[in-house]
């Protein structure tokens, strides 16, 4: 190839690159629109009066007096209790499943003994189980081991209503089914930890328990952030277990997802303004967590 052609080549390519950059950003812009449109449309709709929902374009903000926060007032009224209930089991279940996952990953990754791998396989496979395969036994279990009877003194001596026994069951359920994914997340982090450091700590005379307490746990902080955020989102968003264990949105202990799923159906027609407002109210905690810790969430998802 002579120098001449290579020069024209380069200028051609430069022109290409300019056109190519423009195309690139247009494509990315369209994708952003694709990913945000349903959310944007939902948001503007949630702020409209019933009439405005019907007669303005679904993607335009409310105009000419079509603005109303009445939907949010109703949504909060209906969902507030459910959100409280959700927090009540999501927070302890998140903390405990993360802690147990960290324990298990430590015992299976940074300590060395035979036959670890088969046990590990069981943990990993647990991540992929379709929950339908355990639902009926779960219902049977909770009808045999009756938490409401076991904790009778709570309902007897405190103002907490007996339906809240369901939330205890939900907590235990979410811990148990959260352990596999938490273990896998922590394990991927622990395998990158220096084995020489673990050996140094053992030679320094620290027991396995002390090594966890003084070395591994403090160094796990970044991973705890990832796991806690991921787990909280998963548990808060769950509908299936709530449906099976609490069963009805009319229960005083119903979590927010159960309430929301029933929100549209319980009303005459499809009140989209209210539905959208309800969706945003129910999603608020996860949205806040996501906006504040998006990077940690992405990391949890990617591993």
């Amino acid at each position: 190839m002579s120098t001449d052609t290579s020069r024209t080549d380069r200028t051609d390519r430069l022109a290409d690159i300019d056109g190519y950059r423009v195309g690139l950003y247009v494509a990315i812009g369209l994708l952003v629109a694709f990913f945000l449109t349903p959310i944007e449309s939902g948001f503007v709709t949630s702020l409209k009066t019933d009439a405005a929902v019907g007669n303005t374009a679904p993607y335009l903000p409310p105009l000419f007096g079509g603005f109303s926060i009445a939907n949010y007032v109703t949504a909060v009224e209906v969902l507030a209790r459910g959100m409280g209930n959700s927090l009540l089991f999501a927070v302890p279940a998140t903390l405990l499943s993360a802690l147990l996952g960290s324990f298990a990953a430590y015992g299976l990754t940074l300590v060395d003994w035979k036959y670890q791998v088969p046990i590990l396989v069981l943990f990993v496979a647990g991540v992929f189980i379709p929950y339908q395969a355990v639902l009926v036994p779960l219902s049977r279990l909770y009808s045999i081991v009756n938490v409401a009877d076991l904790l009778w003194f709570v309902w007897a001596y405190t103002p907490v209503s007996v339906q809240y026994a369901d939330l205890v069951e939900l907590t235990v359920t979410h811990i148990a089914y959260g352990i596999p994914i938490c273990t896998v997340l922590f394990r991927s982090y622990y395998t990158s930890m220096s084995t020489e450091m673990m050996e140094a700590a053992r030679l320094d005379g620290a027991s396995i328990r002390r090594v966890y307490r003084r070395i591994v746990f403090p160094l796990s902080t970044p991973m705890f952030a990832v796991v806690l955020i991921y787990q909280f989102t998963q548990i808060w968003n769950d509908l299936l277990f709530a449906l099976v264990i609490v069963s009805t949105g009319s229960s005083p202990a119903a979590p927010v997802t159960l309430k929301l799923a029933g929100l549209g159906a319980s009303l005459e027609g499809l009140d989209f303004g209210l539905r959208m407002a309800g969706a945003f109210v129910a999603a608020l905690p996860t949205l806040l967590v996501y906006i504040a810790f998006g990077d940690e969430f992405a990391e949890g998802v990617a591993s």
């Binding site: 220096s194 020489e196 450091m197 050996e199 140094a200 053992r202 030679l203 320094d204 005379g205 620290a206």
Partner: peptide, 17 residues
Amino acid sequence: PQDRDIAMVFQSYALYP
């Protein structure tokens, strides 16, 4: 290991970060 009265220096130093 901890009962042997030995100390070891590792290749990667293995300091606690």
